[in-house]
Design a protein around this nucleic acid. Structure first.
Lengths: 233, 233
DNA sequence: CGGCGGCATTGACACAAATCAACGGCGCCA
DNA sequence: TGGCGCCGTTGATTTGTGTCAATGCCGCCG
């Protein structure tokens, strides 16, 4: 079973590869599974290649000397990890940690550069991908810089809906919060206690129903409205 | 006088262009000057092409419906603006506003795509550039999410040193803060009053000397140390 | 010239969020 | 089976920033 299965590939930048290149990829790639909690690479490490996420959820976390910490990016199935330092020719600037058990394929920098040289379209698709990633990073920068914890939490739930939301036949939306309160807090630049309180406040206002790590939302519009019009109307 | 002068070009991604392509660039480009305060494009606008900054300083600002606002990026001489939406195939997600009088060259999207198709190396250099921009965005995201206003201010001064710092013969460093307190505040996700107070506090601690928009730093090490070891030692 | 508007600073105060502390629940494994 | 450690919540309290208001400064323009 090749790591780069067609099902996943066609939705990613790897769709640019020719059959020969797919063959090269599959020969060079090293795949393994990582349990939750495992660290894939550490900030400061030299970047030896990149990691294609076949399945699972990974967080890129930055930490400083005082222990202050924040999650700067999430990587889902089909995403690629480590491309930023590879392309910028830098060391890793974040630590990658598995949030949900993952299957990850490593591809070394030399192979990657060979593919980029032989296939300009691959570079163009990476360009598009990284441009979107920059847009998301700037969006979250804006949110943390300008919005309240409550609003940031709602943005986070809406964001997680893309990958962890399911809608039942009667239109009710369920969103799984796929990580601890601590990690949710690090995603929005807050403390776990503040996340707990904000979630309860939003629940008390009838915007969602929380049980454990699952959020039930009856009227997603009411959530979205608060993002656009603020609390009061 | 062609817009893409060799002096600036060789330090940017445009160094990849062949003489023919430079010629095409110079034929297609439209240059003009913008006074401070002028808006170059507005968030939500379709992206019609990109803007090469021959001189000046530009801020990319995000604003929401409630008027909350933050500066998500600065663009200096030699930088290119608008490449993110162009490459991500999105509309502009920020408003570009001139901070210091600028000379800017506009190059339309069709020309740009033609250059990218004819010259893969241009794409590779953009890839490298945008990868670094993503690194900077994530660094600032971490700072706003995890650090105090005081620390963020120091980071900002150190950042501005790259483009607005000069060192005298006796080793004293002068950094110009090239914008209003309001804009400084929007760069770090704070209020102008908080910026004023933080600057005064840092000055009271003898780490810098502030007069108007110029900061004098005698021992840059002491500033940098605070970033790595915190306030106390 | 005089006055208006934006900039910067400062003080008093309010408030959102952090901190500190305590508790119950749960999984894990010695 | 018991206990240790992490998770999640809640309460009490502190504190860093935001908010509001007043002032002085300066540049600009009628």
């Amino acid at each position: 079973m090749p790591c780069l299965s067609a099902r996943i590939r066609t939705k990613t930048e790897w769709d640019a590869l020719t059959p020969d290149e797919i063959d090269l990829f599959n020969r060079k790639v090293v795949c393994r599974t990582y349990p939750a909690g495992q660290v894939i690479f550490v900030q400061g490490d030299p970047c030896k290649g990149l990691y294609f996420i076949e399945d699972g959820l990974i967080a890129a976390r930055k930490v400083d000397e005082e222990g202050q910490s924040a999650i700067v990016r999430l990587a889902y199935q089909g995403d690629t990890l480590g491309y930023r330092p590879l392309l910028a020719k830098e060391n890793h600037r974040a630590t990658a940690e598995v949030i949900k058990d993952a299957k990850i394929c490593f591809i070394g920098a030399p192979t990657m550069h060979r593919l980029l040289r032989s296939n300009p379209r691959l570079g163009m698709l990476f360009l598009e991908h990284i441009a979107q990633a920059l847009g998301e990073a700037e969006e979250r920068l804006f949110q943390v810089a300008a919005l309240s914890v409550r609003t940031r939490i709602i943005h986070l739930v809406v964001l997680l809906r893309d990958h962890y939301g399911t809608t039942t036949s009667d239109g009710t939306l369920f969103v799984e919060l796929p990580m601890t309160r601590r990690d949710l807090a690090e995603m929005i630049g807050a403390r776990p206690e503040s996340v707990s309180r904000a979630l309860r406040d939003i629940q008390d206002d009838g915007l969602m129903d929380l049980s454990g790590r699952t959020v039930r939302v009856d009227q997603i519009d009411r959530l979205i409205d608060e993002l656009h019009h603020g609390l009061h109307i």
